[in-house]
Each structure stands twice: as C-alpha cells, then as structure tokens.
Design a protein around this nucleic acid. Structure first.
Lengths: 109, 109
DNA sequence: AATACATATATCTATATATGCATATATCGC
DNA sequence: GCGATATATGCATATATAGATATATGTATT
C-alpha cells in the first residue's frame, strides 16, 4: 500500500513453503521434476525410498503448491509448479527488500 | 545438458538453507533483520521467545550464512546477509531452470 | 577481581517429522 | 465382477526440532 512492499505475506506462509524445501529427499524430487514430469513409480525408483514415503513427500510438496499432479490411467504424474517457486523466491526477496539480479543477463559477478 | 545449469549445488546445501527458513520464529527474525541490524536483546524483546531460544535460532541462521554477527562491547549485533539470500533464491531458481522475472525493471518473461 | 549485564551453551521435554510395513483406494485389462 | 498394477493412507517408531530453565562464557565497570 505504501509502495515499498507490494504485498504482504506472513511468516507462516513462507515457512510452510520453505519447510517443504527443507528436506533433502523432497529437494531431490524437486530437482527431478524440474527436468521433466514424472510418474510416482519413476520417482520412487530414482529416489531410492519406499513408495509410501515418496508419496508422502509428494503430498507435502503438493499441499505447498510446489508441484501439481494429474492422473493418467493408473499413473499419477507430478510436475514442478515453476511459477509458484518463482513467485516464492522473488516474493520472499521482495519482502526482504533484496534486489534480484538476473543470473543470465550479465556475466559480471 | 552442458550449459543449461551453470553450477551444481547439491540438495544438502539448499535444504540446509531452506530448513533455516522453514521455521516461523526464524522467519520473523529474518524479517526483522531485513529492516535493520539488531542486538540479540532487541530481537528477544521483539520476538517474545526466551533469550536462549532466540540465541539458538540465530545460531542456526548464522551457520546457514543467512545472518552475520558482530560484537560491539557486551552486545552482539545480527544483520541479514542479503547477498547470501539473493544467491540462494536466484541460484535455486537457476538450478531448476526457472526464469526469474524482475519485479520492477522489466515486464517480459 | 568482583559484580553486573549480554549472549551462548547444556540439558531436558514435548512435539513434529521421516520412514517403513501393512493396507486401502483407484484404474486398467480380462 | 476379478486380478494386477499404481498410488495413497493408517499405524508404529525412531529421530529431529523447538522450546524452557539453569548454567557458562564473555565483556564492561567499579
């Protein structure tokens, strides 16, 4: 309203989001899904955890709106909700008044 | 695959970082520190948790390099390591091949 | 060096979380 | 419908974490 912070996000909202990222197994899943959409079974195979555990992790990521799922026949395919992640990261930095530099535009560090 | 991801960051590194953010109390602290540097005592007063608890949270944030501390006399002042947070967010999005839109500068995707 | 003040660590407890096994649900092919 | 396959959920459990109180460490002042 006052112009500096374009929107208000409370700590609970961000912490839920970040908590979802704050687990190595879930991050692995996110990394996998950043490449391509995958069925649960494929994720299980790639991750090396039991199917129920992976399913739980996917549920947490889904609830945090980090991933989306769609069913196709017997399989449920998960994919990364990139715009959601982007909104979280930029929104968070914006909230903290941290200017974001474009990674690819300029080479200088 | 060469050239798409400019650098490799493992899940453990990010998860440590995000785990530090994944707690409402710590996020509150981060929000406070985004405004200005603060002594531990001031943070304790603002947060409403016990001093040892706040100290412990600060230790977690410090270890994750999210905040930095400096001692001045009896007080220890903490401040937000903004460049570190920025690096995490952009690095994470970059790692996931998520294009970051500048909130203010340019409208194009 | 003794005391006061600020911060950090030790220890404990309650709660949360990650995981696995067993089972339930959903979808397909027959 | 029945069996096979894929995914989700219930339950139990081990570990992690947040929090408090008590104590230790560090710093300034006298």
């Amino acid at each position: 309203m006052s112009g500096k912070k374009s929107f208000i996000i409370n700590e609970k909202m961000f912490s839920k989001y970040f908590k979802a990222f704050g687990d190595p197994s879930r991050l692995k899943i996110v990394m996998l899904l950043s490449v391509k959409e995958m069925a649960v079974g494929d994720i299980v195979e790639a991750i090396g955890l039991s199917q129920p555990t992976v399913s739980r992790h996917l549920g947490i990521l889904r609830e945090a709106e980090i991933v989306v799922d769609r069913r196709d026949g017997q399989n449920v395919y998960y994919s990364l909700n990139k715009s959601s992640v982007e909104t979280c990261c930029t929104g968070f930095c914006d909230c903290l008044a941290i200017p974001i530099k474009m990674p690819h535009k300029s080479k200088k560090k």
